[in-house]
Design a protein around this nucleic acid. Structure first.
Length: 436
DNA sequence: TCTGGGGTCCTAGGACCC
DNA sequence: TCTGGGGTCCTAGGACCC
């Protein structure tokens, strides 16, 4: 077979993440070295049995065997271990500083923020400039080292760098090689994919392949990435639809997307969800939490000046419950009004609820659009609409000034409410300030 | 894993229209 | 009516990632 990747884009791409990001940020805040300190960041929400490990420093992982998502009870009682609550806003600020460093090496168009601790850099178009600046013998590995050192010197953080000829290859190099190398750098090319990717037999190690997909592939007799690469692509397409095509490309390290052509995924939905601290038996209590989460989502919509046109509710049953949970959604006329969103949630709930014992509740609002031109619902008197808007804005003001707990509706103080315990959370983690 | 939380994308199938 | 086919919109559910 001729080289099927011969005509694929050959660019200079890096996927960079920060080693144990949250934990490392806490280490440097204490003036300590992230690679030499045993530290974990642990949330302390009521419903996680007193805490959940969100990040562990390399030494905490290595010496104490702590893993992310461990529970408090799994954490050994060791006097050397430093335990810190999460401060999302601080991590967001640190992430911004790191990306400011990246902008010295690539233009804005060639930088894509992938997650809170991962960024994609395409240095193809700045390569000549970079060679001029750092020497004609510059290589991607050398450049990775230069960037690592700058961030280490400026902020005390250690970067892990995956280098590839396209975004997905850089991501694979990061996940599958860089993290294991002492240099914290991994470099892949199309030619090295067979040696580095194909031997993998635990398919879930590969980005975008989860447990279910791995199982489906196994069922087709595919037990390694090599098998995947050579599996009949037409049959795979037939079995898995477009996903089949994506998987074949993945096995060859192929990805035709270009960073500077990145499409800006417009924010499509805002959601909040929680595992309740105990099983909920009473419909009234369940509805109280639905209202709280609905109000929280509505408040986030308003602070982003967005309105949502579809509301969805997810109810998860307790483990002991035989009746399954449900999720359902409904279209609404676009709004960010708390009462309208909660009303829609209640309508969904009433239509589907069959008395289940509940442990999980989620609310999502989608079809977002900019607010400011809200259609007034013709069936509600104008004054009511305006008045409701005023009430919501006032509540938001108070929450901004005094924190989320300052104003909790009376029913939240009943047994069902969880708002008080959850106050101050950002993205489900403790934001470390009044309002995220 | 007796239950973390926020988010995106894809698909199947039904309703409805031309 | 034992009737075709294409397109769009909508909902429920699945899968995966950080």
């Amino acid at each position: 077979m001729l080289d099927p990747t011969e005509h694929e884009p050959q660019r200079k791409v890096m996927m960079i993440d920060t080693k144990s990001f949250y934990a490392s940020c806490e280490c440097v805040a204490l003036g300590m070295n992230p690679m030499k300190t045993m530290l974990i960041v642990m949330s302390q929400a009521e419903n996680t049995n007193g805490g959940l490990v969100l990040a562990a420093s390399p030494m905490a992982k290595k010496n104490l065997g702590i893993k992310n998502v461990d529970r408090r009870r799994d954490v050994p009682d060791d006097p050397r271990l430093i335990i810190k609550p999460p401060r999302m806003n601080y991590y967001i600020a640190m992430n911004k500083r790191i990306n400011d460093v990246f902008r010295e090496y690539v233009g804005d168009d060639d930088l894509q923020l992938y997650s809170i601790d991962e960024s994609l850099l395409d240095v193809t178009s700045s390569w000549e400039y970079l060679k001029y600046r750092f020497g004609q013998d510059l290589t991607m590995k050398k450049l990775a080292r230069i960037i690592q050192l700058e961030v280490k010197n400026k902020m005390g953080l250690y970067l892990t760098v995956g280098i590839g000829e396209n975004p997905v290859m850089a991501k694979l190099a990061l996940d599958l090689e860089a993290k294991k190398n002492h240099s914290l750098i991994g470099e892949w090319h199309y030619e090295t994919v067979p040696a580095k990717l194909w031997p993998i037999t635990d398919l879930t190690d590969v980005w975008s392949i989860g447990k279910r997909t791995a199982k489906t592939l196994n069922r087709l007799g595919i037990v390694s990435m090599r098998d995947l690469a050579f599996f009949d692509p037409y049959r795979l397409k037939k079995e898995l639809g477009v996903r089949g095509n994506e998987l074949t490309a993945l096995a060859w390290g192929v990805d035709r997307s270009i960073v500077s052509h990145k499409y800006h995924p417009k924010e499509n939905s805002i959601s909040n969800s929680q595992v309740l601290p105990r099983d909920y038996y009473l419909e009234r209590d369940i509805k109280t939490v639905i209202r709280e989460i609905g109000e929280q989502v509505a408040s986030r919509l308003r602070s982003k000046h967005k309105m949502g046109g579809v509301v969805s509710l997810y109810i998860g049953s307790a483990m002991s419950e035989t009746v399954p949970g449900f999720s359902a959604q409904t279209k609404i006329s676009p709004t960010n009004n708390s009462q309208m969103i909660v009303d829609a949630l209640y309508k969904i709930f009433d239509a589907h609820y069959e008395g289940q014992v509940v442990r999980n509740i989620g609310v999502s609002v989608g079809k977002l659009e900019a607010d400011g031109h809200e259609q007034l619902d013709l069936f509600i008197p104008v004054e009511t609409n305006v008045k409701q808007h005023k009430i919501d804005s006032t509540i938001d003001d108070i929450r901004h000034k005094f924190g989320t707990t300052a104003l909790v509706k009376l029913s939240s103080k009943s047994k069902g409410g969880t708002m008080i315990q959850r106050a101050g959370l950002v993205g489900g983690h403790n934001g470390g300030n009044a309002y995220g």
